[in-house]
Simulated scan of single mutants.
Amino acid sequence: MNLPNKLTILRVIMIPFFVFFLLSGVGGSASKWIALVIFAAASITDTLDGYIARRDNLITDFGKFMDPLADKLLVCSALICFVELDKLPAWMVIIIIAREFIISGFRLVASDNGIVIAASWWGKSKTISQMIMIILLIADIPALSVLNTVLIWVALILTVVSLIDYLVKNKNVLSMQN
């Protein structure tokens, strides 16, 4: 197993620890900071595994499948925790998670037809905004509450816009299914 795939697996392994520290409060006031460090480290492995895979030509079918899945698991875990912690309304989380399912399904159909749907600028912007939003919501710094609110709405809007962008650009994928 190559290094990028090991980093992807490490990201998946980090998720339960992230959730545990975010929700349990076991470490007292330090628990949110432990969760933040775990989330940030897991996010960095996402950037790192893709960079190494492209640089060293280590792209594998396993990586193509697991890397986006690991990303979705990490982000969706954080968002679901935020509903539990009353930091995000459930309807927002449902919209964000629904987008991920729709795009994953779209990519699966496209893949079955020999089409690769690359990440768009909108999709990358959505991911970056979600990661920053998640980090700030975990940190929960009262002086940044207005910024948090703005980032929540930016992430939600970019989620919807990126979904529409994917659907419009790849509408031919839907016509392939009878």
Score class of each variant (00 low, 15 high):
89 P>K: 10
27 G>K: 08
10 L>Q: 03
123 G>D: 02
119 A>I: 02
125 S>G: 15
40 A>P: 02
133 M>N: 10
79 L>K: 03
174 L>V: 07
39 F>V: 06
147 L>Y: 04
53 A>K: 00
90 A>I: 11
93 V>L: 13
51 Y>Q: 12
52 I>G: 13
11 R>K: 10
15 I>S: 06
71 D>F: 10
100 E>S: 10
124 K>F: 12
112 D>T: 00
91 W>K: 08
23 L>E: 04
11 R>L: 14
173 V>M: 09
50 G>S: 12
71 D>V: 08
129 S>Q: 06
139 A>H: 05
160 V>F: 08
40 A>R: 04
153 W>C: 14
8 T>N: 11
23 L>H: 02
67 D>T: 02
105 G>Q: 05
51 Y>L: 15
99 R>V: 05
83 V>K: 02
144 L>S: 08
64 K>P: 03
73 L>Y: 01
114 G>Y: 00
133 M>R: 05
177 Q>E: 12
150 V>N: 10
164 I>V: 15
175 S>L: 13
125 S>D: 06
146 V>D: 13
75 V>N: 07
98 A>L: 15
48 L>G: 06
178 N>R: 10
80 I>H: 02
94 I>W: 06
145 S>A: 14
97 I>Q: 03
54 R>N: 09
64 K>I: 00
120 S>V: 07
124 K>E: 11
17 F>P: 04
32 K>I: 09
136 L>H: 04
101 F>G: 14
38 I>E: 05
44 I>A: 15
112 D>N: 14
127 T>S: 15
84 E>R: 09
172 N>R: 09
103 I>V: 15
81 C>K: 02
137 L>I: 05
127 T>W: 05
146 V>N: 12
161 V>Y: 01
159 T>D: 09
162 S>M: 08
167 L>F: 09
119 A>L: 12
111 S>W: 00
176 M>D: 01
19 V>D: 00
125 S>A: 15
145 S>M: 13
92 M>D: 06
113 N>P: 01
135 I>G: 15
178 N>H: 07
147 L>D: 05
155 A>I: 02
44 I>P: 05
102 I>C: 13
159 T>F: 09
89 P>F: 08
1 M>D: 06
131 M>W: 01
132 I>Q: 04
25 G>Q: 07
23 L>C: 10
31 S>A: 13
14 M>D: 03
164 I>F: 14
11 R>N: 11
172 N>Q: 11
115 I>P: 07
9 I>Y: 05
80 I>K: 02
120 S>N: 10
3 L>C: 09
121 W>R: 14
109 V>G: 07
14 M>F: 12
107 R>K: 06
150 V>G: 14
132 I>H: 02
8 T>K: 11
137 L>G: 07
125 S>E: 03
44 I>F: 13
105 G>H: 02
134 I>M: 13
141 I>E: 10
116 V>C: 10
22 L>W: 00
168 V>N: 07
58 L>P: 03
30 A>Q: 07
4 P>W: 04
84 E>W: 05
150 V>P: 09
64 K>F: 06
62 F>T: 00
66 M>C: 11
